[in-house]
Structure formats: structure tokens, C-alpha cells
């Protein structure tokens, strides 16, 4: 989507429609992107913040999507994380990506088909340090591994959270 005022108004109408039908708040997730619209007027975090403000929806922050989108568009993932409106976060997702290496260059593909990669763990650490605890989900739904491998990701996520709390001196929130 182009991030413009017109598109924002349309998306807000749709979020309102869903929340009204369900009778409750929903969380909207930041996407993995491979392209952007030249006419976009605001950065994605600002668009999501305006949407959450106008509709009362929450945000689902997918840390892998941040890394994938920023890599693919040549942006800095740490800057994106800084700009993200943290107080709207209701849930965090972590996942693995695949590297699509071609003669033209490399794209990262959000494929949910492997372990969470080191740069994504680093961003997750930074996020928890800044915002405290949120419900966190590991997405691994392609090339599903054995239980021990999957559970090791959960243990690692807990360890990163614990380390981040310690680093921040924050009390466990939520």
C-alpha cells in the first residue's frame, strides 16, 4: 500500500468495520515488504501509529518483518524500531527468513521456514530492553522441525527476554 492520507482513511474504515463486527479490538501487524510505493508520504511506523490512534486498534510487531522489509528496502532496522509506536504493541512475532540470492542481488523472504536469525534476535533484545515484556510467538510453519528444535527457539526467546530485563533494569511488565 502507498502510505498516504487517502489510504490511511480507507484502512481505518476497514479496521473499524472489523472491530465493530467482532465487538472487540484487533491487532494489526507490520508487513514484510519487497517493494514500496514511490508516492508514500509517511514512513510505515508513522502510518501504523496514525491507524492505531484513529481506530483504537493495537499493533502486532513482527520483528522478523522489520528486518526483512528494512533489508529489502535499504533502510536501517534499528531506526524503524526506534520510530515504532511501542505503547500500542499487543503481541510480538519472531520468525526465520530465507535469502533469495540471484544474479541481480539478494532479497530476504519471510518464509517461516527456519530458526530466528541473529540480527532478529538482536532487534528483539533491543525491543524488550526498551518496552518490557509482551506475549511473544515463534512462527515456524513451513519445513516444521522436530519438537526439540522448535522448543529450543522458545527457550532462546525466554533467555533473550531475561537478559534484556536485566540489561534494562525494568520490572517485568504486563
Amino acid at each position: 500500500m502507498p502510505y498516504t492520507d487517502e489510504v490511511l482513511a480507507r484502512v481505518c474504515r476497514h479496521v473499524d468495520e472489523v472491530q465493530t463486527a467482532l465487538g472487540r479490538q484487533i491487532l494489526v501487524e507490520n508487513p514484510s515488504t519487497y517493494l514500496n510505493y514511490a508516492e508514500s508520504l509517511m514512513p510505515e511506523p508513522a502510518f501504523l501509529e496514525a491507524m492505531a490512534k484513529q481506530t483504537g486498534c493495537g499493533l502486532l510487531l513482527d520483528v522478523n518483518n522489520i528486518y526483512v522489509s528494512c533489508f529489502n528496502s535499504g533502510k536501517n532496522a534499528e531506526d524503524y524500531l526506534e520510530q515504532f509506536p511501542h505503547h500500542y504493541i499487543g503481541e510480538i512475532h519472531l520468525a526465520g527468513y530465507a535469502e533469495d540470492i540471484t544474479s541481480e542481488g539478494t532479497l530476504l523472504i519471510d518464509n517461516h521456514g527456519g530458526p530466528v536469525q541473529p540480527p532478529v534476535w538482536d532487534l528483539f533484545h533491543r525491543l524488550i530492553e526498551k518496552t518490557g515484556h509482551h506475549p511473544t510467538l515463534i512462527e515456524w510453519d513451513a519445513n516444521i522441525p522436530d519438537w526439540d528444535t522448535l522448543y529450543a527457539e522458545v527457550v532462546k526467546a525466554r533467555q533473550v527476554m531475561a537478559d534484556a530485563f536485566q540489561a534494562s533494569g525494568l520490572e517485568k511488565a504486563g
Binding site: L35, N36, A38, S73, E104, G105, L107
Partner: peptide, 22 residues
């Protein structure tokens, strides 16, 4: 051909190849 107005990044991966991901 992908629609007009889409941009990638200066890394060399064409808009067409990026569009193929979708």
C-alpha cells in the same frame, strides 16, 4: 510488467524480480 509507481532499492534487484516474490 508490474504496475507503475513501485520502487525497490539501489541494490540492483529489479522491481520485476521483487514483484515476483508477491
Amino acid at each position: 510488467t508490474p504496475p507503475d509507481g513501485l520502487i525497490g532499492h539501489s541494490d540492483g534487484v529489479s522491481v520485476g524480480q521483487r514483484f515476483n516474490v508477491y
